[in-house]
């Protein structure tokens, strides 16, 4: 039965790793469209780089890296590491800022004319 467990572990690892690698590769090569990821595009957007989007990316990557490092260095294997409650609060605030900016632009922005 232990052989089966080892087989399953490698199976899941190959699938997850392969999927992550493919998505990362397609993001880096542009096959997955990332045009406008940082720009305030849309019929009422300014078309310029949005600081709200940039800060959301920084917070997201930071939170993800921190969490993965906690899982890897967890002194209690087999359990999820505890996350300080500040992190969900910080991330929630970051998302709120991004969504607030998005909502303001969508509802009160001027449609582009030339």
């Amino acid at each position: 039965m232990s052989q089966l467990v080892i087989f399953m572990k490698w199976e899941v690892l190959i699938f997850l790793g392969g999927l992550a690698a493919l998505v990362a590769l397609q993001l880096l090569t542009g096959q997955i469209n990332t045009d406008g990821l940082f720009r305030d595009i849309g019929p009422k957007g300014s078309g310029q780089t949005s600081s709200a989007r940039v800060q959301l990316l920084i917070m997201t990557v930071g939170a993800a890296a921190y969490y993965i490092s906690q899982v890897v260095a967890n002194p209690n294997p087999g359990t999820f590491p505890a996350i300080p409650t500040a992190w969900p609060v910080i991330l929630g605030g970051s998302n709120l800022l991004h969504l607030g900016t998005k909502a303001f632009t969508a509802w009160f922005g001027q449609r582009k004319t030339t």
Binding site: V23, N33, T34, D35, G36, L37, F38, R39, I41, G42, P43, R53, L56, L57, T60, V61, A64, N95, H98, L99
Partner: peptide, 13 residues
């Protein structure tokens, strides 16, 4: 409407 979404990117990560 087109253009990449930061919310989707965050959900993906």
């Amino acid at each position: 409407g087109g253009g990449a979404s930061m919310s989707r990117f965050q959900l993906l990560i």
